[in-house]
Write a protein that binds this DNA or RNA. Structure first.
Lengths: 193, 193
DNA sequence: GGCTTATCTTGACTAAAATCAATGGAATTT
DNA sequence: AAATTCCATTGATTTTAGTCAAGATAAGCC
């Protein structure tokens, strides 16, 4: 139930058995069926979800009713609206399951208590945060400097598992493109890739 | 010399005088003239720079020789290629001064030592990191979901000081646009804004 | 199995941004 | 002060992506 989470944790910061036990007290497992929401816009993001199994996405809906996918998350990744989670303000994002999921939830109070009482959690969180920032920076750089063809190539290179498990029109949305345009990019660069 | 830095620090995590003194030992002040580099692509980013005074930018150069500005930083902000800084790999970014600057440099070894020996520095860094992530997330969401006009309006709303101090063609570059297109956006929405 | 949705692709057309080019003005340099 | 460089704007044209529409295939549901 907690294997993926602690394997990720230990990969970043090594925990003793008693520390692992202490952390476990703050975690809540939860299953989510495909299409179920973890968060809906207008609500406050009360938990960060770590994915043990399955696939999720976060997205916003613009004034024309169009969905724009901000992120995907698979096993071993966390998802949540960090801004809403930390400030306890209303979220503009929606988060739902793309497949049946097994999640580990960390509530805001669990997060705050662990930051104080489990120093290694603070370190773990800082490292995840830094990695997330670096990934987002890379994405931003690719948006402002690369051609669409290269951006897509680099996406399938970096996230082949997402390309396999997520419908293409969602990847188009994540890139800020229409599905037709992504389809044309694929035919240009050869679908084999 | 260190006023802005410690005022920012204390705003996030309150330091005692002795803690402030301890942190100060790890800092190096530096002045940079307009157009001087803090980092050039191909080098390893050896320091993060906190800006006491002045303005800086980071950018990458693509295969066609075109510059793409990733970020601006004014007084009270930090700049550096985090990915290169933390992994000590070669950077693809350039960082230079848009105005004469007074900086406070934090080297990688100072950073690593403070993370261990000054717990409040780890907290401070985690908070800055989180804020930077949230800001970048907001930027990404605006790129994938807003019209150019609204993106520019929201930029001048959020960063009026940057709009005032930085040439427009650089703001265009930061938005991933040609200078002509930004000029046309401005005439569309009324320059008064 | 058959029906209904999703999903992807392709074509024709439209809309938007990039590019090319020229101009005028402002700021910097000498 | 004159010369040079930098900067912003505008117009004409080209390129690129979006939109609308139709059709094919696959997946999920009864």
């Amino acid at each position: 139930m907690y294997e993926v989470f602690f394997s990720k944790f230990n990969e970043k910061v090594q925990l003793s058995e008693s520390e692992e036990y202490a952390v476990k007290q703050f975690l809540t497992p939860k299953k989510l069926r495909k299409r179920q929401y973890l968060l809906q816009e207008g609500d406050i993001c009360k938990t960060v979800a770590f994915i043990e199994k399955g696939a999720m996405r976060s997205y916003i809906v613009d004034s024309d009713g169009q969905e724009h996918i901000f992120s995907f998350a698979l096993e071993g990744w966390a998802i949540g609206d960090l801004s809403s989670f930390l400030t306890e303000q209303i979220s503009t994002q929606n988060i739902d399951a793309l497949e049946d999921c097994e999640l580990i939830l960390i509530s805001k109070s669990a997060h705050d208590q662990m930051l104080i009482s489990v120093p290694k959690y603070a370190t773990f969180f800082r490292i995840l945060m830094t990695e997330a920032y670096i990934a987002l920076q890379k994405r931003t750089l690719s948006i402002i400097s690369m051609t669409l063809d290269d951006r897509y190539k680099s996406f399938i290179d970096q996230y082949p598992d997402i390309v396999q498990r997520v419908p293409q029109h969602m990847i188009a949305s994540h890139m800020g493109l229409s599905p037709e345009t992504l389809s044309r990019i694929r035919s240009r660069i050869g679908k084999s890739q």
